[in-house]
Computed example of a mutant assay.
Amino acid sequence: MSPLRANRIPAISASLLPEETVAGRNARRALIWVVVMVVVVAGLCAAWFALAYRDKQAAEHELDAATVTVSDLQREQRTYSKTVQVQNEIATLDGQLKTVMANDLDWSALLDTVRSTGTPSGIRVDGVNGQLNGADGGGAAVSNPLPATNGATTIGALTVTGTGPDKQAVAAYVDALAKLTVVANPYVTNVATDEKTGVTFSLTVDITQNALCGRFTVACKPAGGK
């Protein structure tokens, strides 16, 4: 038993303060907490405002610096306006030339290829007559009715005449032409025996799109190549 019970002293506690005093104390305590919260919130708002103002000032300084840089660059660009204009005109002219010269053909390289292809067989080319499709403003040039054996698009035709030691040499020449990419569909139209030169022949061969080249389009390959 506790000493309190042993002495039979009753445990009695009571608040003798008036209710108005307790309520006043609670009100003052609540007011203090409200004031503290308002001060804390006001401090946070002031800190946020100061940070935002500093960022705004920094952004304005950066904007001013960028504006000055742009003005300097524009002033320098005006100094070279003529050069820029000439460069733009050159670019425009190059584009126009590429369009106009899209069907440019290096006839010299093509003729050298036709001649050199027959050299291993002892073929001598005496004459070449060529024409591109629609080059004269009319219809398509005369060409073989067969599609290109190498899968390329035909754009014209050549008529080749020459001499060779025998018909086997002419056949070998035709086979060699068939392996090229710049021409296709070689077709012998005439072969005649000549007592002095061996045989004379004439053949037609189509010009393919692979033969198109020029300064403003696809670079031309060296003459004599495929």
Rank of each mutant, 00 (worst) to 15 (best):
S2I: 08
P3D: 04
P3L: 10
A11M: 01
S15T: 03
P18Q: 07
E19Y: 03
E19P: 10
R28N: 12
R29W: 07
L31R: 14
W33P: 07
V34G: 10
M37S: 10
M37D: 04
A42S: 13
C45G: 13
A46W: 12
A47Q: 15
Y53T: 05
D55H: 06
E60W: 01
H61N: 12
A66S: 10
Y80K: 00
V84I: 13
Q87V: 15
D94M: 08
G95Q: 14
A102S: 13
A109T: 14
A109M: 07
L110A: 01
T113K: 04
S116C: 03
G127N: 13
N129K: 14
G134I: 00
G134F: 04
A135N: 05
G138H: 11
G138W: 01
A140N: 13
P145V: 00
L146V: 09
T149F: 00
N150F: 00
G151I: 12
T153Q: 10
L158G: 06
K167I: 11
V170P: 05
A171S: 15
V174F: 04
D175K: 09
V182Y: 09
V183L: 02
V183G: 08
A184S: 14
A184K: 08
T189S: 02
T189I: 06
V191F: 02
A192V: 14
V205S: 04
D206F: 01
T208Y: 10
Q209M: 04
K221Q: 12
P222L: 04
A223T: 08
